[in-house]
Simulated assay, not measured.
Amino acid sequence: MLGRILRLTGRGLGDFIVHPFAHLLTLTAVAMVAFLAGFVLLTLHNVNLQLLKTRGQVEFQLYWAEGAKQDTVRSEWKTIRDMQALKEFKTFTPGDALVELAETLGESGDFSWLRDQNPLPYSALAAFEVPPDKQEKGWAAELLTELKSLPGVEKVHYAPTQMDLAQSWVALTRTVAWPVVGFLALVAALVVGNTIKLSLMTRRDEVEILSLVGARPWYIRWPLLTGGFMQGLVGSGAGLGLLFLAQNTLKDALNVPPFFIEVSFLPPEQCAALAGGVILVSLAASWVAVR
């Protein structure tokens, strides 16, 4: 039995030599569909990576009341440093803030005359890493309330859209990505299915003779299904190869100011899912065609 299956598999592979032009066109179409689907996933993957970096961190600007005592402010700075999930904390005395402002403005930022009557308050910039189990806007709002409750703090600012933008984009990609990939899978199914039908037409006499002499359906279908499997396997591999070349070409295209974005390749699980999906679609299209 095993020898017969191997022999039928060899017939299916040998069909590539008998009808090379038709199979080459099919492989080209399947490879291009796999490449387009992979390119969509690659784009979404890299955009998600960049936005999730922002989503994983929330920054707060804190301002203490004018005339706040230095000991009180430093005590509250220590309280903030002891908070959980604090990733980065920069503090500014009124003098530090004046120097920063002068450096930002350049030549027009000479505020030496304000040194004895500095109107700027104590301030700080606190960056918190969002815990994995609290990727919600409510967590940032609770932290905002906690920071505002410090006795000497007068104002606290943060950008709630920082997390909302990333969450909205992730929801959008989940909504848009799969219909696009599904459409490309349908194109691959139609291409492979039509090619198998053309192959059947060229072998119609052979199939009819096999049926007349009592060959079982699986005996006739196995070589054709083997051909569909190989088309999906080779086509998906070629598509991923083209995608890898495109990623290498575009790797540093955006790695320049002000973007500094390095285009990374798809993770292994997505590559496997893409290849597996193309193979399954090719097998399904072959099965429908030979039915």
Rank of each mutant, 00 (worst) to 15 (best):
residue 254 L to G: 00
residue 235 G to D: 08
residue 162 Q to F: 11
residue 127 A to L: 12
residue 46 N to K: 06
residue 193 G to I: 05
residue 264 S to T: 11
residue 243 L to I: 02
residue 196 I to V: 11
residue 85 A to H: 13
residue 74 R to N: 10
residue 246 A to Q: 01
residue 77 W to R: 03
residue 96 D to T: 01
residue 220 I to P: 03
residue 176 V to P: 03
residue 219 Y to K: 09
residue 198 L to V: 13
residue 126 A to T: 13
residue 263 V to T: 04
residue 180 V to W: 04
residue 104 T to I: 07
residue 122 Y to P: 01
residue 87 K to R: 15
residue 103 E to P: 00
residue 235 G to A: 08
residue 121 P to H: 10
residue 97 A to C: 03
residue 227 G to E: 15
residue 84 Q to K: 15
residue 162 Q to E: 12
residue 14 G to Y: 05
residue 239 G to P: 04
residue 271 C to S: 12
residue 216 R to K: 15
residue 18 V to C: 09
residue 158 Y to C: 09
residue 170 V to Q: 06
residue 28 T to G: 14
residue 40 V to M: 07
residue 76 E to H: 09
residue 106 G to M: 04
residue 249 T to D: 08
residue 32 M to E: 01
residue 11 R to K: 08
residue 202 T to E: 07
residue 254 L to V: 02
residue 229 F to A: 07
residue 82 D to Q: 12
residue 27 L to Q: 02
residue 290 V to T: 12
residue 60 F to H: 04
residue 96 D to F: 02
residue 257 P to V: 06
residue 151 P to R: 11
residue 149 S to H: 09
residue 242 L to G: 01
residue 196 I to K: 03
residue 181 V to Q: 01
residue 202 T to F: 12
residue 19 H to K: 10
residue 102 A to S: 15
residue 208 E to R: 14
residue 190 L to Y: 12
residue 251 K to T: 04
residue 151 P to H: 13
residue 198 L to A: 12
residue 130 V to G: 06
residue 99 V to Y: 09
residue 161 T to H: 11
residue 34 A to E: 02
residue 209 I to V: 15
residue 90 K to A: 07
residue 166 A to T: 07
residue 202 T to K: 13
residue 85 A to T: 11
residue 10 G to N: 10
residue 123 S to Y: 11
residue 101 L to I: 02
residue 121 P to T: 10
residue 150 L to N: 06
residue 15 D to G: 13
residue 182 G to F: 04
residue 79 T to I: 08
residue 114 L to W: 05
residue 283 L to F: 03
residue 77 W to Q: 11
residue 279 I to E: 00
residue 194 N to Q: 11
residue 251 K to M: 05
residue 256 V to E: 12
residue 183 F to R: 01
residue 222 W to Y: 08
residue 20 P to Q: 08
residue 235 G to L: 06
residue 65 A to W: 05
residue 37 A to T: 00
